[in-house]
Design a protein around this nucleic acid. Sequence first.
DNA 1: CATTATTCTTGACGATGGTCAAGAAATCAT
DNA 2: ATGATTTCTTGACCATCGTCAAGAATAATG
Lengths: 191, 191
Amino acid sequence: MKDKIRKYFDRLVILPDEEWREMEQCFELIEFKKGDILLDANTHCNFIGFVNNGIIRFYEIKKGNEKVTAFWFPNEFLSNYRSFLSGEKSNHYIEALSDGGYWKLKKENLFKLYDDFPVIDRLGRKMAEQLYLMITKRVDNLLRETPEERYHNLIDKNSRLLQEVPQYMIASYLGVSAETLSRIKKRIHTK
Amino acid sequence: MKDKIRKYFDRLVILPDEEWREMEQCFELIEFKKGDILLDANTHCNFIGFVNNGIIRFYEIKKGNEKVTAFWFPNEFLSNYRSFLSGEKSNHYIEALSDGGYWKLKKENLFKLYDDFPVIDRLGRKMAEQLYLMITKRVDNLLRETPEERYHNLIDKNSRLLQEVPQYMIASYLGVSAETLSRIKKRIHTK
DNA sequence: CATTATTCTTGACGATGGTCAAGAAATCAT
DNA sequence: ATGATTTCTTGACCATCGTCAAGAATAATG
């Protein structure tokens, strides 16, 4: 069951069996239903997780409407990593868009693992580095491409999103209004 | 001379003297003149650095004009960290906006230090985490605030920038054209 | 199947900011 | 100081996108 987590980690460091056994015990499967709030706004995020199954979104409410920052699918890292690191409260909600489950690792346990096992500390470095790379790519995407280019990128890389997530959430994720996304689609299909 | 680097590190981990002595030796002071290119575009960034003195900018050329991504001042971290981590070529230039110098630590040396000293591996984690936090703040700033709000933030936090950097570079950093920044200033001052 | 709720599309309009162009102001070099 | 270069300002115009509103299409519920 937890094999996929280990696979994720194995791409980052060589994690010996002993360390993995220690680590493995700290993961707890949390099951959720569509619509469940996995992390409330105004809360400190004290865990990281890995999606086992289901779709999850990460969003905030700004001036009355929702701004979607991320979607998460199986085998992806799940957290408000910013709140996790800084200790500040999250502005964002984490919400299940379908039934599913995720593997939860609490901050206190991870920090204990960091202290006890240098290789896990290194794993933490690698994770932070990966997340840094991911966010820089996202920034590039948002700042240097037009909404239409962003839409093309999205359907190339993640067609599942389009099938399983309401379009207005995708619009928000792309940084445009629902109406604009609708017009973008029209523009593309009449070409 | 290198004390400020250690101070920077001391805020992240407790770095014993022995480790610091090893690390210290790896830093080399690179002096530069205004206009010098410290990292060329289309190059892999194989170092991190800390500004000793001077002002530096980080920018790319997109469709013929410059997009400024960051400015760096003394005691700040200096790198194309994305290229550094991913091994990909940088799209960005690092350019000196004044005479000055920075402490350079080569990737190969840092990686050796990571392997030899767990506490430095942890320091690497902390650095990656800090940089992650910085970039998320920057993204928030760019995506969720108006250009005028961004300008206000900037003059509050970094008045030195306004005094020492041409306005068109600041405009680019704020994500607007030079003309728009000029109009923003006018709007503010006639209030 | 019928009803209700949700999501998507389309049009009209306005606000914002980009581009182009020209001139003013400031800075730099000889 | 003076001429040259760089930087900043201002106006005119245009393109893009957001908002509001109304209706169409789709999905959910009993």
